[in-house]
Design a protein around this nucleic acid. Structure first.
Length: 505
RNA sequence: CGGGACGUAGCGCAGCCCGGUAGCGCACACGUCUGGGGGGCGUGGGGUCGCAAGUUCAAAUCUUGUCGUCCCGACCA
């Protein structure tokens, strides 16, 4: 009790105190992002600065995904930030869907303000002939380009991805989860047949699920969106849905089958083997820095971030505990051997021997930052040829022999990765609850949250009504969904299957 | 766009009601004792109080305006 009190007091004095999840989940999330050094607020409304630690995390995620995309045959390219308005509006549904949240460039020059010394004003003389839309997504500019690249079935499939920033002028933003500008990748592919395009859509959905589960330790449900939730301009939107610790769902990635909508809008035709002209079939798919928000919310605890080893910027941190230069030198020597061993095994390890903060401070700091494994090495340990190994996820500490520490650590990292996934998976499974009546449905949402599996009559009207009454939306119709006769929880009309509802971010 | 908060040192805040020329903790610098869970003691540096106008002998404090940020909703990934 006394210890707890002291610890709490210290935390307050250090200005690092975290809001607990039970106290205020949103604030807890914000605290983790800011104090865990992932990102910072910026001078621009709704836009954040991704700090080095957060960016290192994103780079790790990006690198893994990039490799996966290349292994599935894709190439990277880069298209412009700006989209001429006339191109943007070509695919009507897509344009309409994004119109409300577009930043638009109307002028290309500033000038000194004659009425306001030292200030600049937009030069009214420099108005653009045609406004430029800052891309909220790149289908328009890309399909306009593809028109010139595709003539024959021999040009297909065209499998391209780009890493980019996009801008969506959101009314309300949240660090990582919804920022006005965000980083993402968007894949845009063109195919000769609908079947092939659908196959591509599903393939990339699998890539996303694989990445989320095996790298981020984030269990997801693969499914297809209801028409209401579909991407503007798509025929079908597939998604992976994750569950956060507060029971709210998070759309973690989407893969769209675009049919021939964009090919028609941008007049992209090809000749098949029989010299017959047809529009090409398209897909697009993307994940964004939002994944980082999901990662934080799914795994972390009241002491800070908990990052899965496979994408953590630092997997192991070594903290020396010493008195005097002589002890420090001895520790340095042993640590350098340990580090060499670990690096040879591909482990990312940091030795924090900075003398300006003390061991206890470092322990707390690396816990806050979610480093999976911490190793403390002191003079006492060296005498016994051991070190103290602490894992972040469970907070367990063990004394481990120095010989073979590399292999031990590697195994531990794997175990943490697996254990984090399993824990999240159990949570997810426990939060998929069937509801058979409206009362039950609302009650589950209000008390337990998570996914609610319920019958729905299949109409957009009912879906809209449910959303209005309960704030829950259909997250997806799971891919392997069993057929089951039933009646809609709201309308009482016939239904052939249950779908997953949840309140979502 | 509606509702609610808040802008005072790098960070977190007090001071404002009742005007008198700015303070606390952390961080920072130096010294020293320390070192196995956010150290102790001592000394020190750092602020046009968001911005603008007004009232006043005097404004962080009162008045008006303005800009910005965050939180909660509506919208969305």
């Amino acid at each position: 009790m006394l210890v707890l009190f002291r610890l709490k007091k210290i935390k307050i004095f250090m200005g690092k105190e975290l809001t607990s999840r039970s106290q205020d989940y949103s604030q807890w999330y914000n605290d983790l992002i800011i104090k865990g050094q992932l990102a910072d607020y910026s001078a621009v409304r709704g836009c954040m600065v991704i700090k080095p630690y957060g960016f290192a995390l994103w780079e790790n995620m990006r690198d893994v995904l990039d490799k996966m995309f290349k292994e599935t045959g894709h190439q990277n390219a880069y298209f412009p930030l700006f989209v001429p308005k006339s191109l943007f509006e070509a695919e009507e549904k897509n344009a309409e869907g994004f119109a409300k949240e577009c930043a638009v460039v109307t002028h290309y020059r500033l000038k000194t303000d004659p009425n306001n010394a030292g200030k600049l004003m937009v030069d009214p003389e420099a108005k653009l002939e045609e406004e430029l839309v800052v891309r909220p997504t790149s289908e328009a500019i890309i399909w306009n380009t593809y028109k010139g690249w595709i003539q024959s079935y021999r040009d297909l499939p065209l499998l391209i991805n780009q890493w980019a920033n996009v801008v969506r002028w959101e009314m309300r933003t949240r660090l990582f989860l919804r920022t006005a500008e965000f980083l993402w990748q968007e894949g845009h592919t063109a195919h000769a047949t609908a079947e092939e395009a659908v196959e591509e859509t599903r393939r990339m959905l699998d890539v996303y699920a694989d990445f989320a589960e095996n790298w981020m330790a984030l269990p997801v449900i693969k499914g297809v969106k209801s028409p209401n939730e579909r991407f503007a301009g798509a025929e079908d939107t597939y998604c992976i849905e994750a569950l956060m610790q507060d029971g709210k769902a998070l759309q973690a990635g989407t893969s769209h089958f675009l049919g021939q909508n964009f090919a028609k809008a941008f007049d992209v035709k090809f000749s098949d083997k029989n010299n017959k002209l047809d529009y090409v079939w398209a897909t697009s798919w993307g994940v964004s820095t939002r994944l980082i928000g999901g990662l934080v919310m799914a795994h972390s605890d009241d002491d800070g971030l908990i990052l899965p080893p496979r994408i953590a910027p630092i997997q192991v941190v070594i903290v020396p505990i010493y008195k005097g230069e002589e002890q420090k030198a001895q520790i340095d020597e042993v640590v350098s051997v340990m580090m060499k061993e670990m690096k040879a095994l591909g482990i990312t390890v940091k030795y924090d021997d900075a003398d300006n903060s003390r061991p206890g401070w470092k322990f707390a700091e690396y816990e806050l930052k979610g480093v999976p494994v911490r190793i403390a090495v002191g003079a006492r340990d060296l005498a016994n040829q051991v070190v103290e190994v602490a894992r972040r996820d469970t907070k367990e500490k063990q004394t481990i022999s120095i010989s073979g520490i590399g292999a031990y650590t590697q195994a531990l990292l794997n175990e943490i990765q697996e254990s984090m996934f399993n824990k999240a998976k159990v949570f997810q499974q426990e939060h998929i609850t069937p509801a058979n009546t409206w009362e039950e449905f609302v009650n589950i949402l209000d008390t337990k949250a998570g996914f609610v599996s319920a019958h729905w009559d299949g109409t957009p009207e009912t879906e809209e009504k449910i959303k209005e009454l309960s704030k829950a939306t259909i997250r997806c119709i799971p891919l392997d969904n069993p057929k089951e006769e039933g009646v809609c929880i709201l309308s009482g009309k016939k239904s052939t299957q249950r779908v997953l509802f949840a309140r979502a971010y």
